[in-house]
Amino acid sequence: MPYQENREFQSVLDELDQCAENGQPFAIFRKPDEKKVIAVIQKDSTKYELDFNTQGFVFAPFNWADNALLIKADKVECTEYMDASLVQQSTRALSEKGRVSHINLVQKAIDEIEVGSMEKVVLSRKIEEPFNESAFTVFETLLKSYGSAFCYLIYHPQFGFWCGATPESLVQIADNRIETMALAGTLPHISGISPQWGTKEIVEQEMVSTYILEQLSDLTDSLTLDKVESVRAGNLWHLKSSVHAVMAKDTTIDQVVSALHPTPAVCGIPTAKAKAFINANEGYDRTFYTGFLGEINISGPSDIALYVNLRCMKLERGIATLFVGGGITDASEPEKEWIETQNKSRTMLNILLDDI
């Protein structure tokens, strides 16, 4: 039975359901390790372009110059969500559909890396699964399941519903102070066993850390990198280093975001060559997967909290489209890369009910 404290939360969901019926854009989200849930509602269906000086919620695609959207905060609702109930894990079998093509794609990338075209490229694929829940039920299950992730549900008449539980911050900016992270490497979580990282994961994480420091060096002062640590995100482990800095004089938020997105964790190194390889070879349009999203000036002026859109899916007419990927280096093994994407797919599959 739902907590009594969640009546206000349910009231907000009812309001958002009516917004979707009316074609009004909205976003509802909860930051990592918090109870507060924030809803941003736009009063009309107008398509607004990204403006870091406006109060609202941004939803930007992988190719973020194309159709980055801003949901204006004409109305902001704040509530809390509390629930101690256990979430039943999905028992859906993992499909082997797309295995051969993904393995071949990974091998093609390794060949390009070995001849010196790239150091790393992140390759992804999409998975379509039937579901029979409302988008709001899926969002509530995300809140229950992934307390340490940025959980969100967004609706816009331009693209419908998207939701996710991402473990990766793109950048947090407040009072000219910058916080970001270098996140890379993936291992499945096994109860009672610490992650045993191999050379491939360690080197990949070092690549990401070095790249971020280089990108921010001319835009910031007091740039520091914390020691690498293992962090858990749902049923997966990752390697993470936190990055801290102060914006240099005359540096703009646009410059900082442009310097960081797309990160090597979702694109590759060097960025331009990796992005060109992705667009030419993945075989589908990522749209908002591996883009970024988050609040702009809601918590205060020049207060930005943006996240990388990982562990996400699009919900449309009874079909949930999931997206999974992994970083490819010269140490990658195609079969293991396929298994990694299978493991990652569980994050979203686990919140879809089986009784379809």
Rank of each mutant, 00 (worst) to 15 (best):
W197L: 14
E206A: 15
K240M: 03
T186G: 04
L187R: 12
Q205L: 09
L216M: 08
T199L: 15
S242V: 05
Q215W: 03
S217L: 06
I190W: 04
T210Q: 12
T224Y: 06
I212D: 01
V228G: 00
S242I: 03
Q196W: 04
P188L: 12
P188I: 08
S222H: 13
Q205E: 12
P195H: 10
V203C: 07
P195G: 12
T199K: 15
D218C: 07
S230N: 05
S222R: 13
H189N: 06
G198W: 08
H238I: 03
L239G: 03
E204S: 09
G192D: 13
P195R: 10
L236S: 04
Y211W: 13
E204K: 08
I212Y: 01
E214Q: 15
Q196Y: 07
L225P: 00
L225D: 00
V228A: 05
T199M: 13
K200V: 11
E206D: 13
L187Q: 12
N235G: 08
T199E: 15
T224D: 05
G234P: 03
I190F: 07
Q215S: 10
T220R: 01
T224C: 06
E204L: 13
P188K: 14
A184H: 04
K227Y: 04
T224K: 11
E229S: 02
A184R: 04
D221G: 06
D218F: 07
G198T: 11
T210C: 06
E229K: 00
E229T: 01
T220P: 07
T224R: 09
T224A: 10
Q215D: 03
P195C: 14
G192W: 09
Q215L: 03
L219A: 04
S241N: 11
S191N: 14
L223I: 05
L216F: 03
K240P: 00
G185D: 07
T220K: 02
H238A: 06
I193K: 14
T210G: 06
I190T: 12
